[in-house]
Amino acid sequence: MAGMTTGHRLGPLDDIPVGEGRAYAVGDLMIAVFRLRGGGVRAVSAVCPHAGGPLADGLVDRRLVVCPLHQHTFDLSTGCSTTGQPPLTVYPVRVDADDQLVLEM
């Protein structure tokens, strides 16, 4: 193990319904966290680079989030847009032993 990284507790996993996203303000950052159906969480920057859409309101599947405003899509693991927009920032996120969401910084 390469020592300890630090993380920030965002709150209980159950704050996010399965298959949906919720937005968190972490310091000055705005982060959208998604709880995937079939397991797994993903965190990306919350503001759509296209025209500022709220990504946490988007539809997701295992791979993509679709922005609710103009339906641009982004890969949740890489942040890259599959529809030609600038990429999102991806944040490492996990669920700890107490079922808390932890954002690694």
């Binding site: 300890m4 993380g7 507790r9 919720r22 968190y24 303000a25 310091g27 500022g52």
Partner: peptide, 22 residues
């Protein structure tokens, strides 16, 4: 809960961190 803008949002203080790998 709002997704943007996050003004009313309960902000998570950056200081309150937990060690990874617990």
């Amino acid at each position: 809960r709002p997704s943007l803008p996050l003004i009313e949002q309960p902000r998570v203080p950056v200081r309150e961190s937990v060690p990874a790998g617990t």
